[in-house]
Design a protein around this nucleic acid. Structure first.
Ligand code: FES
Ligand code: FES
Lengths: 144, 144
DNA sequence: TTTATTTAGGATAAATTTGTCCGAAATAAG
DNA sequence: CTTATTTCGGACAAATTTATCCTAAATAAA
């Protein structure tokens, strides 16, 4: 469904959000530990999320990653997935035709579009805030 | 969403079904052309589908692939996806946790399970027969 | 029986994704 | 200013997926 990079990116962003809601910046190392992801690979992903403007990064001692608290509710799961995996999952043909086009549909078009749109809507309606809150109160988990 | 192998496999199977409904066997070469897929790679996929019992293969002149006509309605899209990509897409965690478990859920669990289950149900309810019929009457297309 | 045709299957290669390493740049603190 | 810490960014490596090549095996027909 999502790439590994995207899975790590989502988990990392949620963890950063939790810390940010407690006015704490968090280091790459801590993130990778909490999210159970390879450190250097996670660094790349966070770098790209920072460039996308979803998270903020600061170098040097006391540096690390954070998310402006006022943004946490506005950031949707959709934004993270779109930033890392791109929009292909939201607009691409289920059978890999170069273009998904209702006027020239593939055999699964009608049935696939519904699922694809539901996924998109779900991601657009899911805020980083609610995901972070669930984690913060111990309702959900980032590793097992 | 699906792997390339799965996309090719679905398209190939639908094409074979159409031909089988007209009592025709079809060669690898023809399939790859109609499906716009690499010949040798398609061969591997068809080989595995044959081993899974979804399609039948015959060697030699006049050989090729076919599907027993009485099975075309019983075969579901789910069977093809499951044979090629496995069940991970139907039971796996959206964030890649080793196990999707409602008693130890990841942050997206509740929202993800709905999408995942809808996909599964859709695939289970979609027969090869209806996909092949749509293609046969020119309503849908395997390439553009 | 010989030949032509077609799938089976193993080895290999290319492309992509995932993951590592290391020096550079920024920056906080002594 | 110096040092320690942390992210940045490029090069590189490993793993996986996608794709190719070639020979073997089966088999239909001359
Ligand atoms: S054309 Fe294939 S999903 Fe729309
Ligand atoms: S635990 Fe992640 S989807 Fe169920």
């Amino acid at each position: 469904m999502f790439s590994k990079a995207c899975e790590y990116g989502i988990k990392a962003t949620i963890y950063i959000a939790v810390k940010s809601m407690h006015q704490e910046r968090v280091s790459l190392k801590e993130i990778a530990e909490e999210v159970n992801s390879p450190v250097a690979f996670t660094a790349k992903i966070l770098q790209s999320l920072a460039k996308s403007g979803i998270i903020d990064s600061h170098k040097g001692p006391t540096g690390g990653f954070q998310i402006e608290e006022s943004n946490i509710d506005a950031i949707k799961l959709y934004d993270i997935v779109n930033a890392i995996d791109g929009e292909k999952i939201f607009v691409g043909c289920g059978l890999g035709l170069e273009q998904c086009d209702a006027s020239q549909p593939c055999p699964v078009h009608d049935k696939f579009v519904g699922i694809r749109d539901n996924l998109k809507i779900m991601l657009q309606n899911t805020s980083l805030y609610e995901l972070a809150t669930g984690l913060d109160i111990g309702l959900t988990h980032l590793k097992r």
